[in-house]
């Protein structure tokens, strides 16, 4: 067993984990942060995407021990008093249906906009390529990211 300390959604969390424990299992099973779902076992779907030190990672592809000392933000820690602009835009644009891919899709979009505040449609599609959605055909997800980008640029002025 290995002792780890991770700042999760702003709070320092410590735990004993097996070397093989995945970050997503630690978040869900040990910390009870069940807002991050699991959609596959081959790191293709991206449903479990979280932010680690500000960058999006698929938490099924990170060992919990690798997260030791880092800052992790999940969908449940993204709102800071009020919803993140990407969360708002997803609702506004009907960018989700069943909602299972949504936590990963939103966190991936937050990272994408951190890197590129004014992406083209092509860049958005490219940036979200690692996150699968089975309901929306991505059409409204692209619209939502465009809307959020505009809102965030406006807020940054």
């Amino acid at each position: 067993m290995h002792r780890i300390s991770v700042t999760v959604n702003g709070t320092t969390r410590e735990g004993e984990v097996e070397a093989r424990t995945l970050l997503v299992h630690w978040l869900r099973d040990s910390l009870g942060l069940a807002g991050t779902p699991i959609g596959c076992d081959t790191s293709n779907c991206g449903a479990c995407t979280v932010l680690m030190d500000g960058r999006s990672v698929k938490s099924c592809s990170v060992l919990a021990v690798q997260a030791d000392g880092s800052e992790v933000t999940t969908i449940q820690g993204l709102a800071n008093g009020e919803w993140h602009p990407v969360q708002k835009a997803f609702k506004e644009c009907h960018a989700l249906q069943c909602g299972y891919c949504t936590p990963g899709m939103i966190t991936a979009a937050v990272d994408l906009l951190g890197e590129n505040p004014d992406p083209t449609e092509e860049e958005i599609r490219h940036g979200l390529e690692g996150n699968l959605c089975r309901c929306t055909g991505y059409h409204n997800i692209v619209k939502a990211v465009e809307l959020a980008a505009g809102e965030m640029r406006e807020a940054a002025k």
């Binding site: 779902p37 997803f90 609702k91 989700l96």
Partner: peptide, 19 residues
């Protein structure tokens, strides 16, 4: 009308069977 369902879904307050 914007969906009532979304408030929980975009914030991770979800009850999937596995949860």
């Amino acid at each position: 009308v914007r969906r009532k369902e979304d408030d929980r879904l975009v914030t991770g307050q979800t009850t999937w069977t596995d949860n």
